[in-house]
């Protein structure tokens, strides 16, 4: 059984705050070979790719009421052979830009977010509130080398998205 640290980000999200710094602080505390068990109110899909890049495998399990438990375990070998220079996920800065796109007609939110993303300096972040998961935005972000993390608030009414510019 892998030794691991437990981290529950559900209260953080419920309080309307960003969980990144907590996740990253926990990651920084991990001893070599130690894993991270994360509890989240939604399946943190975007985090999987980020964690894979950092050399963590994951196993997810759905709990009641759509909540998830994800166990991240360090892989024996470095995950990617040609990584973009290790982008420490633990220093995602406070958002430089915050957008509330909940009242905009699609596809305006996507245009606004990409427009704002272009204003970011290397490694800076923006955060945005939306009323739907921006499924058409993700491929555009990916093409431009941006990373993102997002999910619905527990009541399902607002989608919170944080985007980080490539360093």
């Amino acid at each position: 059984m892998t030794d691991c640290i437990d981290l529950d980000v559900r209260p953080i999200l419920r309080a309307g705050n960003e969980p990144f710094s907590a996740i990253m602080a926990a990651l920084a505390q991990l001893a070599p070979g130690q894993g991270l068990r994360l509890y989240a109110p939604f399946k943190p899909v975007p985090l999987f790719a980020v964690m894979a890049e950092k050399g963590f495998a994951y196993a997810e399990r759905e709990l009641d009421r759509g909540e998830w438990e994800v166990l991240f375990t360090p892989e024996a070998r470095p995950a990617s052979s040609a990584p973009p220079p290790a982008q420490p996920f633990d220093d995602w800065p406070e958002p430089k830009i915050t957008l509330d796109n909940r009242d905009l007609d699609p596809p305006e939110p996507m245009v606004k977010i990409l427009g704002a993303a272009e204003q970011l300096g290397p490694g800076e972040t923006l955060s945005a509130l939306l009323c739907r998961e921006p499924v058409f935005l993700f491929p555009q972000l990916e093409k431009r080398g941006f990373r993102w993390l997002g999910g619905f608030t527990p009541d399902g009414s607002t989608y919170e998205l944080t985007v980080r510019a490539p360093a």
């Binding site: 596809p107 245009v111 990409l114 427009g115 704002a116 993303a117 093409k143």
Partner: peptide
């Protein structure tokens, strides 16, 4: 919509 996304996606925001 799909034409718009295909044509202008790459320059969106730029």
């Amino acid at each position: 919509f799909l034409t718009w996304l295909e044509a202008y996606g790459p320059v969106m925001g730029r």
